[in-house]
Structures are given as C-alpha cells and as structure tokens.
C-alpha cells in the first residue's frame, strides 16, 4: 500500500530484531526496579502515616521490691497520659495482644514464663501543642521503668532504606536508559552505513536530512514499542508472580506488595517514555551523522 513502507529498507535489517530484544530487556529491568522502589516507598509511607501521631509507652516489669507492682505503675501512667495536654487517647494494649505479637519469635512455652512489659498505645491529636520531650521527662520522673517510644529512630531507618532503594532504582533506570540510547545510536549508525547508497539517492532526489531522519524515527519507534510491549508484559508477569508468592507468607512479616492504580499507570508509561527517548536518539544520530557528510 502507498505510504505504508519506508523509503529505506530498514525493516529487512537484522539490527531490528536485536533492538527489539535489547529494548525489551531494558524496559523489563527498568520497570522491575521502579516497581521495587515504589513498593518500598509505599511501605515506608504507610508505616509512617500509621505511626506518626502515635506513641507507645513501655513500662518494664521490675523484680525490685521497692518499686510498686506493674499494674499499679500502669494505672499511674495512664492517668498521667490522659491528663497531658494534646493526647487524645491512651489505652493499655491487652496482654493477649502483646503475647500474640511476640509469639512467632519467642514461642508459647517461653512466653508464659517471661515477665512481659505493659504497653500503652497513645494517640496524639494533630495540631495540638504536644511536647514529646517534656512528656518523656515527666514520665521518667513519675513512673520508674516507663519509657516513651516515639518510633523516630525506627522511622528514620525506614526512610533511609526507602530512599536508598529509590536511588538504586534511579541508578538502574539511568544505566539501562544509557545502554538503550547507545544501542539505538549503534543501530541507526549501522542502518545509515548499510543503506548509504539509498540515503545518497534520497538526497539527490531532494530529501532533507529531516526527511531521512523521519524514516529512522518511524522504524525505531516501531521497534521500541514492540520491545516495550514485550518488556512490560514480562515485568507484569514477574510482579504478579511476586505478589502471589508473597500472599502465602504470614501477614506482617512480608511487606505489602500491592501497587496502586497510580503506580501501575506510572509503570505503563515506562515503555512510552523509552520509545520517545529512542525516537529522539534516532533523530539526533541521523542528523549528526548526515551533517558531517559532504
């Protein structure tokens, strides 16, 4: 059909098939890396939003006779917390719940003999002028063995982990993108060399460099889209398989692997962005090579 074929017989080059697979692998790697960083970021975000505004007060059991028993100290602590400005709720975590939390690590037998600390779950109202440091000081003075845990250190670690993962993902994407750009440059240069007689003919017939470049752009866009579809498909299979595998492990141990709709949409744009990058690279390469020709 008219208009369906390129003036350059690029479709017959073996570099084409090679480029489809290169692009497929690159896009697969980029998507999996990005998805990994998204999962970690989402995890950190969920933990953070679940934990900020929440504190835990831990009251250690003390065998020392001079200290009031744990139950009494817990009552005192609860009263103190409830009268503190900015705190909206303070409840003791039921012993059974604490038990259950530790059971997978310590086992039932051991747990029964172990003196467990009392835990108090504290919620802080947003916007209220709540001062964690002052509370910690007051608690330490009023109740022996009481310790305020605002999860800050734990959250900081988590944030560092999530950020590191994002940096690694970014590095993977940059490296993979660089390799993809290099492959496109190579394929286009090869194409120009193989078809130099046709390119010369097109020039003699009055083709502009941009016209020749468009031939390559169309060709490369087709290859990149095909590679992108393959890479995206393989990545989707991998992510779904990982999620299925994670679904069988006990809740709480494994991070939540679910990606939201927004994340999926972002991942689907990866092949499109890669195609755009490939097309721009092809254009730039052709124009660069041609303008250096006599």
């Amino acid at each position: 059909m008219i208009g369906q074929r390129l003036d350059l017989p690029l479709a017959e080059d073996s570099t084409g098939r090679f480029l489809v697979w290169i692009m497929a692998v690159m896009i697969y790697l980029a998507i999996v890396a990005l998805a990994g960083s998204m999962v970690l970021a989402g995890m950190a975000g969920r933990w953070e939003s679940g934990l900020t505004g929440r504190l835990t007060v831990q009251i250690a059991p003390m065998p020392d006779e001079s200290v009031p028993p744990l139950a009494q100290r817990t009552e005192v602590t609860l009263a103190l917390l409830r009268s503190t400005h900015g705190i909206t709720r303070a409840e003791q975590v039921a012993a059974a719940a604490t038990h259950k939390l530790l059971e997978p690590w310590l086992g039932n037998a051991l747990l029964d003999d172990l003196p467990l600390p009392a835990l108090i779950d504290v919620e802080v109202g947003s916007g209220a002028g709540f001062d964690a440091a002052a509370l910690a000081e007051r608690l330490a003075g009023a109740v022996p063995g009481a310790r305020l845990d605002n999860h800050a250190a734990w959250l900081a670690d988590l944030r560092i982990l999530a950020h590191t993962a994002q940096l690694v993902a970014l590095a993977v994407v940059v490296l993979v993108g660089g390799a993809a750009v290099a492959s496109v440059v190579f394929a286009v240069r090869t194409g120009l060399a193989i078809h130099s007689p046709v390119v010369e003919l097109l020039h003699i017939m009055g083709a502009t460099d941009a016209y020749v470049a468009r031939q390559f752009q169309t060709h490369i866009a087709g290859l990149a889209l095909r590679g992108g579809a393959v890479g995206l498909g393989l990545a989707a299979i991998t992510l779904l398989a990982l999620r299925l595998a994670a679904g069988d492990t006990p809740v709480g141990l494994m991070p939540d692997m679910t990606l939201g709709l927004r994340e999926w949409l972002a991942l689907i744009t990866v092949p499109l962005v890669a195609t755009a990058l490939a097309v721009l690279t092809a254009r730039w390469t052709v124009l660069r090579v041609l303008t250096r020709m006599p």
Partner: peptide, 18 residues
Amino acid sequence: RLLDHLSALDNVALPLRM
C-alpha cells in the same frame, strides 16, 4: 537506482512524497 523493496508505484511516488 530504483528502490528494490518498493513497488513501481511507490518508486514513482517518491518525489511527490518528498
């Protein structure tokens, strides 16, 4: 210097396309 992968029609059409 015809383009072997194009039909006669597409070969002749080339200057107009450009």
